[in-house]
Amino acid sequence: MIKNPAIRFDNVSRHFGEIKAVHQVDLEIGDGEFFSMLGPSGSGKTTCLRMIAGFDRPSEGKIFLYDRDVSNLPPYERPVNTVFQDYALFPHMTIEDNIAYGLMIKGMPKIKRMKRVDEMLNLVRLPGFGYRKPSQLSGGQRQRVALARALINQPKVLLLDEPLGALDLKLRQQMQVELKNIQREVGITFIFVTHDQEEAITMSDRIAVFSEGKIEQVGSPSDIYERPATEFVAGFVGTSNLVSGEIAKRATGSTKTFSIRPEKIHLGFAGDTPAAGMAALDGTVRDVVYLGLYTRYLVEIEGGADLVVIEQNLKTTSMDVLSAKGQKVKLSWHPDHISHLGS
């Protein structure tokens, strides 16, 4: 239980006819958190966001904003603002008017709101852009205007619907850092929807992983990455090796399925004795992919399973690693680095 959560989902479902876009979701998002909703498209994360914003209403259950039931309020009566995936800037207005829109609707006098607009333009590092039109701005600049337009209303919660999706990689990484800084500066709860696991891990305080309308796991980025609770999370967030049955028993003494990240596995010679306390399996290298910074090995374990192993090329060259193909190897890892899966 989080004390005084900014957002609370109480058994929320959203069904479109037969399709269960969101099904019986319980969730609490803390005040001031940078919270990400991560999942593939159609997993229900965007529907959850739209229900918080008020564009959609739950078929069942309730949504609370600081203990106030907002499930049935229209969007214009919720102290929540959204940064849209396509930015949704008003093309017929200048940047200034776009940003001041919320204040204009509230009836704030022009002089006062223009002062606030200037502050916001500074915050998003676009001073002097007020008189331009959205069509004269680049994607990254439009993104910042959308952010300023939402933040100027001082919402209690800011919703971001895949806002970096349309940007190229370099700009995206830059904006990730900037967004995080702005969030620290304004101290507002950010709810960030994304399908990019790296982005979620980089930016968030906590992450909820969505699949097929349900939440698979909620936790800090390191929890999600290192202790995936389900097979889905293990597979969706990063690459993971799933080991089960007879082979699992050989390694851990139990047939229970566990997951292990490729970089946590140490690749040794077939005859090596693993260090004390390490779990180990024997196998044969079936495939080697040299990737510059690191090398990816596909190792076939006796008994059928294939494990992916990643080793950094600290001392090795491509010649060295490629010659490993076909060799017998011993795989070992620390038992703490595995995660037993619930389902």
């Binding site: 914003a53 008020g54 564009f55 969007p75 214009y76 929540v80 959204t82 609707i105 939402a150 209303n153």
Partner: peptide
């Protein structure tokens, strides 16, 4: 939606 989101 953006307009309604901004309070209109």
């Amino acid at each position: 939606e953006a307009s309604m989101d901004l309070g209109a």
